[in-house]
C-alpha cells in the first residue's frame, strides 16, 4: 500500500477538521447501525470516495468500490441462504470487514491528503494544547515511515525463511509476531528520536507562536459536508432511517 501524501490542493479541498468530523461520523454510523439500508450505506461511503477521487486516486476508488460491492453482494444474495454454523462464522467475519471498511476508506482520505503542517494548523484552530498537537501530528507523519520500514523488514524476514506467510502465521504465530515487532519497534524508536531532535533544532517547540503557509479554513464545501452529516445524524436519531 502506498502512503505518499498528496500535497497539492484540488478544487474539492476540504479542511482536515471536516475530514476528522467525517471519520468520527462514519465510525459512529458503522457501529450504531449494524444493518443500515444499503442505499444509505452507499451514500455514506460515497462521501469519502468523492474526495479521494478529486485527488486523482482513481485506482483506490475503483478498488474500494469493487470490495464494497462484493461485501454487499455477499450480504444480499449469500447470507440469507447460509444456515450451517461454520458458514455463519465466516459470514460474520465478512460482516466485521464491512463494518470497518468505510472507516478505513475515510482514514485513507485523511492520511493521504493531509500534510503534517495542515494537521498542525487545523489542531491549533481547535485550540488544542501544543503538548497534544505535536505528538499527534508526528504520529501521522509516522504512518508512511512505518510502511517504508516494514517493506525492508519483511523482505529481511523472507531471506531468513521467517517471512509473514500463511504457513508461518498458522504454525508459529507468536514467534512470527515477535520477529515482526522487534526490528520494527527498534527502528521506529530510533527514527522518532532523530525526528524529534531534527524538529526541535529547527525551532519547533511547545508554546512558540507559529504561522503556516498552508492555512486551513472552512469553506463552502466543508459546510455542505458538515450539514449533510448533521442532517443524516438527526434523521438517524429521530428514527426516520
Amino acid at each position: 500500500m502506498e502512503f505518499n501524501v498528496i500535497s497539492k490542493r484540488t478544487p474539492l479541498w476540504i479542511d482536515p477538521r471536516t475530514k476528522f468530523a467525517m471519520l468520527i461520523f462514519i465510525g459512529i454510523f458503522s457501529f450504531t447501525i449494524p444493518t443500515p439500508p444499503i442505499a444509505i450505506e452507499v451514500l455514506v461511503l460515497s462521501m469519502p470516495l468523492i474526495f479521494i477521487l478529486a485527488y486523482g486516486m482513481i485506482s483506490t476508488v475503483i478498488k474500494s468500490s469493487i470490495v464494497f460491492a462484493t461485501l454487499i453482494f455477499i450480504q444480499v444474495f449469500i447470507t440469507p441462504n447460509v444456515t450451517s454454523g461454520y458458514g455463519i462464522f465466516i459470514l460474520s467475519i465478512f460482516g466485521i470487514i464491512r463494518m470497518f471498511f468505510p472507516i478505513g476508506v475515510t482514514a485513507i482520505l485523511l492520511i493521504r491528503t493531509t500534510t503534517v503542517s495542515e494537521f498542525l494548523s487545523a489542531f491549533r484552530k481547535l485550540h488544542l494544547p501544543d503538548a497534544f498537537i505535536i505528538p499527534i501530528s508526528v504520529m501521522f507523519r509516522f504512518i508512511p515511515t512505518i510502511t517504508e520500514e516494514w517493506k525492508s523488514i519483511s523482505s529481511a524476514m523472507r531471506f531468513r525463511g521467517i517471512g509473514v506467510s500463511p504457513q508461518n502465521i498458522l504454525t508459529k504465530p507468536m514467534l512470527t509476531l515477535e520477529y515482526m515487532l522487534v526490528p520494527l519497534l527498534m527502528s521506529t524508536s530510533t527514527i522518532s528520536e532523530e525526528l524529534a531532535a531534527a524538529s526541535l533544532s529547527r525551532g519547533l517547540d511547545i508554546g512558540i507562536k507559529r504561522t503556516s503557509i498552508k492555512e486551513v479554513y472552512l469553506g463552502i464545501i466543508d459546510y455542505i459536508v458538515l450539514c449533510f452529516m448533521f442532517g443524516l445524524s438527526i434523521a438517524m436519531g429521530v428514527g426516520i432511517i
Partner: peptide, 23 residues
C-alpha cells in the same frame, strides 16, 4: 528521519513557520 513534513514545500517553509514569520 530529518523531515518533519511529508511534502517538500511544507518542509522548505517549516523553519520559517516556526519563527512565526508572516506568510
Amino acid at each position: 528521519s530529518q523531515f518533519f513534513n511529508v511534502d517538500t514545500t511544507s518542509e522548505l517553509a517549516f523553519g520559517c513557520e516556526n519563527l512565526a514569520m508572516p506568510v
